[in-house]
């Protein structure tokens, strides 16, 4: 899977979460996904806490991308 495809997917998924196009994802944004994804509100909060590496309450594209590459390759690639 090419690097461009991964970047493209990362942006697509980030925008699926950041529906107000703010440039970051909040805990509330993740909770809103509860209806659209087969995950519970608690699991979505768990995902948010896992991805929010600096625990500042906002998910940046970089944090989101690190989590996605960890999922794809088993290690964080910023």
């Amino acid at each position: 899977v090419g690097q461009n495809t991964i970047l493209e997917k990362t942006h697509e998924f980030f925008q699926m979460c950041d529906i107000e196009n703010k440039g970051f994802i909040t805990r509330r944004d993740m909770q809103r996904l509860n209806g659209g994804l087969p995950l519970s509100a608690e699991e979505l909060e768990n995902v948010f806490d896992t991805l929010d590496s600096d625990s500042n309450g906002y998910l940046t594209l970089d944090e989101f991308s690190s989590g996605f590459s960890e999922f794809l390759f088993g290690q964080k690639v910023s």
């Binding site: 997917k9 697509e12 998924f13 699926m16 659209g36 994804l37 087969p38 995950l39 699991e43 979505l44 768990n46 995902v47 896992t50 991805l51 989590g67 996605f68 960890e70 999922f71 794809l72």
Partner: peptide, 29 residues
């Protein structure tokens, strides 16, 4: 080790999350 368990659980929920986004994007049931 409880930390190991928490790490594995987080990995699982992350995998679940990204797999859900992938299938939502591709429109797979």
């Amino acid at each position: 080790d409880p930390n190991m368990k928490a790490g594995a659980a987080n990995e699982g929920v992350l995998a679940n999350f990204f797999n859900s986004l992938l299938s939502k994007k591709t429109g797979a049931p």
